[in-house]
Structures are given as C-alpha cells and as structure tokens.
C-alpha cells in the first residue's frame, strides 16, 4: 500500500511538470479586442495600447506586446529584479506598492487597475531572451508601472513571459 502511494505520488510529480508548463505557456494576446475593451472603459484614459506599444519597442517586437487583459507570468520563472537581473525566488506575479506597504495581487486585478487608472507610466522595461529553443518562451519582460488612481499613486513590478519572435 505504502509503495503504491509512493508510486502514485512520483507519477503525479512527473506529470505535474508538463501539465503546469502547458497551462502557463503564454497565448497570443488579442490586441484589437483588448483595445476595444479599453475604449469601452468610460471616462478613463486609454493607457494600455500605448503601453503595449512601448513594450513592443522594448522587446523589439513591435505590435506583439504581451500584456493582455490577463497576463500570464511563468510561475517558476517569475522573480524580482536586482541590479537589472531577475532573481529567484519570486514574490509573485505582481507586487503592488502603496506607500510603505507592498503585497502580491492577482494579474486580473492589475488589468482592472490599469483600466481605472488616470495615468499609467511604465519604466524600467527590460527584455531578456532566455530559451534558445525554437518556439519555446524566448523572452521575459520585466517592467515597473506607476499608476495614478485618483490621488493615490501605485507602483507595480512585473516579470512575465512574452511571446517568442516569429521566424
């Protein structure tokens, strides 16, 4: 019985790798749809397309930015930036900072925050090319965002996966 459990656990471990990898592989963002969604956000500015554009520049993949309504960070490659280099382990997909406090928030909430922000400023955008394999995730993008929500200024840091370049 104990041996069967051990076997089951190890088989589950073996299968967890490919299943997780398959799930987190970033899918291509639908930019036109995203743009439409933002333009429907009443009263707010339209920060996301310009942000996508700047990400595109940074990664040299103009028009193929990564930030969809739901960014998908690679859970095992996410990290924080130290001296411009990503370092593991990670605090989470996004770290939100308001004043002295910081906490991790879900990506979906970040998308909502972006929609509601009066202004969005992105800086420290860096692209790293990692996996040399064809088609595998080849670019990680690190960035910082400063959002202005009413009178509150919120800072965000993110390290996520971008789409591989077309060949």
């Amino acid at each position: 019985m104990r041996r069967t459990i051990m076997l089951a656990v190890l088989l589950a471990l073996a299968l967890a790798g490919p299943m997780a990898a398959y799930a987190v592989y970033p899918s291509e963002p639908n930019l036109p749809r995203l743009s439409r969604e933002i333009s429907q956000t009443a009263g707010g500015p339209r920060p996301l397309p310009s942000l996508v554009e700047s990400m595109g520049h940074a990664a040299s993949y103009r028009g193929r930015g990564f930030i969809a309504g739901e960014p998908r960070p690679l859970w095992f490659q996410r990290g924080v930036l130290v001296a411009g280099k990503p370092v593991i382990p990670a605090p989470g997909p996004w770290v939100i900072r308001t004043g002295n406090s910081s906490r991790v928030i879900p990506s979906r909430d970040v998308a909502i925050l972006l929609h509601r922000s009066r202004s969005v400023e992105a800086w420290g955008v860096k692209a790293y090319i990692y996996l040399p394999r064809r088609g595998a995730v080849s670019v990680l993008i690190a960035m910082k965002l400063r959002l202005t929500l009413g009178s509150t200024v919120v800072e965000l840091r993110w390290l996520g996966a971008a789409l591989p370049p077309r060949r």
Binding site: L13, L15, A16, G17, Y25, L131, G135
Partner: peptide, 27 residues
C-alpha cells in the same frame, strides 16, 4: 522532443524532462 519541436509542445516537453527525471531518480 523538446529539442526538435517548437512552441508550446517544445516548452511542455522541456519542463517534463526535469519532472520525469526527478521522479525517476526519486524512485
């Protein structure tokens, strides 16, 4: 498979290499 394929398949196989090896050595 990871070495010769591309896209999601390559990525999935790449991670699976580590997880299957880990399970094998653990066993």
């Amino acid at each position: 498979l990871a070495a010769i394929s591309g896209g999601r398949l390559s990525y999935t196989a790449y991670v699976a290499t580590a997880s299957f090896s880990a399970a094998g050595f653990a066993m």
